[in-house]
């Protein structure tokens, strides 16, 4: 549904987006990750036709956003960053306006408005002016606007920003449900959201794509992926590490904690991603009193940091 090829945007001398290519099909939810200023919003603004690209192309549902902007925009719903809405209107007036400009008239418009009001839980504030809304409600109002015409393509710039944990949960559920039938791109800083919602994630840094894969694949890139943490009682740390180094699959062992006779060590595997290491370690440690033994899944935030800030990530480790 969305096809982005070699997209670039230059502001003055700064290359905000530099050769970004990806595509999103129907039924996919693409998470767009990256530090602030990486070019996420700029990319989204080009996809939605707000900013003209300096290079490359975007096509939505087969329509080029530059050549056929109206047709492409018709297929898209867009939630801009910070969820802007006309402050002088009521929620109902605002949704009516957006429905009308999307070409919905008469009964179709009424149905569309009441559908999104229900989906986004806006019933309580329907006749309140947007200006007086709390941030969460304003956000949902703008979100409602983006899905009012039931678009095939949704572009959401930080859809859960500024929401409380319950609202975040609701919005994620909503995105995931809609993702079954639509092509969705959404940007976020919150990595757990990627796990909760995305079928695929892209990490973008300094205008370039630095990682692209399913959340599972990205996690595999973590140093932590497949590492095994072991806590035992009544042994000295050096004895534990020595023994673990004898296990053939182990690449490195670090002592995490050692006090009052409780020793916690972490063993990193030579090749990541299977349960064999935990099994082998379990066998090697059978003569000790095991208090804890578990296998790490790999952490997205770790991957994110090591990719976007390679220097500091090494220092921290």
């Amino acid at each position: 549904m969305i096809k982005v090829q070699n997209l670039a945007k230059v502001f003055g001398t700064k290359r905000a987006v530099d050769g970004v290519s990806f595509s999103v099909n129907r039924g996919e939810v693409l998470g767009f990750l990256g530090p602030n200023g990486a070019g996420k919003s700029t990319t989204m603004r080009m996809i939605t036709g707000f900013l003209p690209p300096s290079g490359g192309s975007v096509s939505v549902g087969g329509f080029d956003i530059v050549e056929h902007p109206i047709e492409a925009k018709r297929l898209m719903g867009y939630l801009p960053e910070n969820a802007p809405a006309y402050t002088d209107m009521t929620v109902y007036g605002f949704l009516n306006f957006t429905a009308e400009i999307r070409g919905l008239r008469g009964d179709a418009r009424k149905q569309a408005v009441s559908r999104v009001v229900e989906m986004c839980f806006l019933g309580a504030v329907l006749h309140q002016s947007v200006e007086t809304l709390s941030k969460g409600f304003r956000h949902r109002t703008c979100f409602a606007q983006s899905i009012i015409h039931d678009p095939d393509v949704l572009v959401l710039d930080e859809p859960t920003d500024g929401l409380d944990p319950n609202q975040k949960h609701e919005v994620r559920q909503l995105i995931r449900r809609m993702g079954e039938k639509k092509a969705i791109i959404f940007s976020t800083h919150i990595l757990e959201e990627v796990d909760a919602v995305c079928s695929r994630a892209i990490i973008i840094d300094r205008g370039r794509i630095v990682a692209n894969g399913t959340p599972q694949e990205l996690r595999q890139r973590s140093e932590w992926a497949g590492a095994v943490t072991l806590r035992v009682k009544g042994v000295v740390a050096s004895a534990v590490t020595a023994k673990l180094y004898q296990v053939p699959l182990v690449k490195k062992v670090t002592v995490v904690d050692d006090k009052d006779g409780h020793v916690t060590v972490r063993a990193f595997p030579k090749s990541s991603g299977n349960g064999a290491l935990a099994q082998a370690i379990g066998e090697a440690a059978h003569e000790w009193q095991i208090e804890q033994l578990h296998s790490e899944e790999g952490r997205l935030d770790d991957v994110f940091r090591s990719i976007t800030m390679p220097d500091t990530a090494k220092e921290a480790a």
């Binding site: 036709g49 707000f50 925009k73 018709r74 867009y78 802007p84």
Partner: peptide
């Protein structure tokens, strides 16, 4: 100032 221009110009209108 409010940012609604981003909404307005991404609607299917010229």
């Amino acid at each position: 100032r409010v940012g609604t221009i981003e909404l307005l110009l991404t609607m299917p209108i010229t």
